[in-house]
Design a protein around this nucleic acid. Sequence first.
DNA 1: TTTTCATTTGAAAACCCTTACAATTTTCAT
DNA 2: ATGAAAATTGTAAGGGTTTTCAAATGAAAA
Lengths: 328, 328
Amino acid sequence: MQPKLKDVAKLAGVSVATVSRVINDRGYLSSGTKEKVYQAMRQLNYSPNSAARALRGKTFKLIGLIFASVENPLIAEAVQKIENQLFEGGYKAIICNSLDNPAKEQQYLKMLMANQVDGIITGSHNESLKEYKMSGLPIVSYDRYFPSPIPTVSCDNAAGGKLAANTLMDKGSEKLMLISGSLEKIPRNADRVAGFNQAVEAVGQKSTTVRLRFNDTPGIKRAMIRQQLSAYQPDGVFCTDDQTALLCLQEAKSLGMKVPDDLQVIGFDGSQYVQQYHPELSTIVQPIDDIVDLLVRILFNRLEQNDDQLLDRYVLPVSLLQRGSLRN
Amino acid sequence: MQPKLKDVAKLAGVSVATVSRVINDRGYLSSGTKEKVYQAMRQLNYSPNSAARALRGKTFKLIGLIFASVENPLIAEAVQKIENQLFEGGYKAIICNSLDNPAKEQQYLKMLMANQVDGIITGSHNESLKEYKMSGLPIVSYDRYFPSPIPTVSCDNAAGGKLAANTLMDKGSEKLMLISGSLEKIPRNADRVAGFNQAVEAVGQKSTTVRLRFNDTPGIKRAMIRQQLSAYQPDGVFCTDDQTALLCLQEAKSLGMKVPDDLQVIGFDGSQYVQQYHPELSTIVQPIDDIVDLLVRILFNRLEQNDDQLLDRYVLPVSLLQRGSLRN
DNA sequence: TTTTCATTTGAAAACCCTTACAATTTTCAT
DNA sequence: ATGAAAATTGTAAGGGTTTTCAAATGAAAA
């Protein structure tokens, strides 16, 4: 059995209240007792029962993380960094993979509330809007546009789409194709698509659009991409995420298209992983470090109610990472 | 404020004890009261305070997941699958990225115990052995060899190393190199290395070994690999993980070595990600689905004390995925 | 009718901690 | 030396739930 406050108190020869005070560094304490208590705690390898603390009004120091799938490199990176920062701040992270499934997301939400999490960082659907609102919890959203007052952080998806289009056209592509890696219902994606199309139309050009679904297997996606590539023979493709762009690159090559001479490709996300391990792929890079910093900062700000001036909506700039899949 | 048991009781016109009994389906209950209570719970959207429950001996239904880094595709995949299965079983997952840092791992362990997790699945160091033992918690380990009675699941690392060596030699490589992606202190890695070296020596061949460190940046790893490749000019390389193998492939190519003619490369892990998005890389594939199933099954078995006959040690077979980085 | 026993319910203790309050000791200005 | 204020410690209540125990009801058996 884990040692309790009482055990520590007995060993240190003080009352439980004193031990509690030492732990929470509260009120007056002589350095002598402090030392004795620390000693005893160390000796017993004591750590307070968080259930009991939570019951007495202290929080659990628990944050829910809801994302579509941690298998996506950018999300993995974000989760990793978020978890790190939370840990620094003394918080734990409960992980939830919604798989972009609204029902599952709703279940998660309910579970998180029942578990008294202190807050939620979500990068998933927002169909469960009611629940989010009702929860009364501090919530921060990544790349999903919640209505005020839920703060949202995202990169400038529209600008990214535009940048992709203009880059392709500047570098000589004329038959453009857009491959949307997941439903356009998701506003983030819709913005990337809209930004791209707008820029294309602005100069009187055209482009076809291919729509894949988030939950399609890579095999299915591959087949669809391959078919569209050979049917339409584009010379410039923008994919709304890097995974899709990688499939596109592969299929293009296996169709005998030369990259970047016959075909230029741009992806979106630019995780460290892709930057390191896919050196050919050009992509629109999200400033993921800044995004994570902001997400966590906003959350902490609400949790610790040190009311800094905070916006409801942060849009961070994207940048182009130009590599082999683009001409010089 | 969340509604409490008392609120439900008042609304249903019964005592708190009765409500609790309904929730836990315990003892005798008339169907009338049951219905009333359910009704009230629904009306108030009540869900029990898990802190209070935990205090009274119920478990939190919380599992700690300790891994080096969720940024590694294989780990991401494992975490994803584990989380899924836990969720099905009504459990939540707390995620811990130890970064292969024993101090951090120890902190996590302490934190998990303080948070009354019900069990732990760890794929990280085992330097904190004492803590693991002391915790008295159900623990299952992936790919780290804990002493009995902590059950350990892993793939056959030694056989994998051997398979890599024999494959390279069968396909004509004569100047072999082994690149160890992280410290050999980690037994998993040591086994891969040992298996490889054994197979090499068994036929009177030789190989050089390069040691990288887990926490080196990709840039540093890259530089070391490049230097060793050009210094030693191997014609067959086995890397103890896929990430390292990818770096090796890249550096080899940028040094002008032709793959697989001048140089054959084999990695280790074979995550879905690598299989899908790095179609050139040959690798030793871990049966990750089976591994995850087993990990979770063993854990549940201990949690729910339905004592199936279980071993302390499961070693699952690996397989070779042969692709472009190997000759036919 | 009385006795027995299964059912149904409620009152209250217990879980481990925090914190308001009270009690005691020390410090310091007068 | 005196009193007031500051510092230090302890006692006990309370937080939301589960669970033991006892009480109350009703039905069946004697």
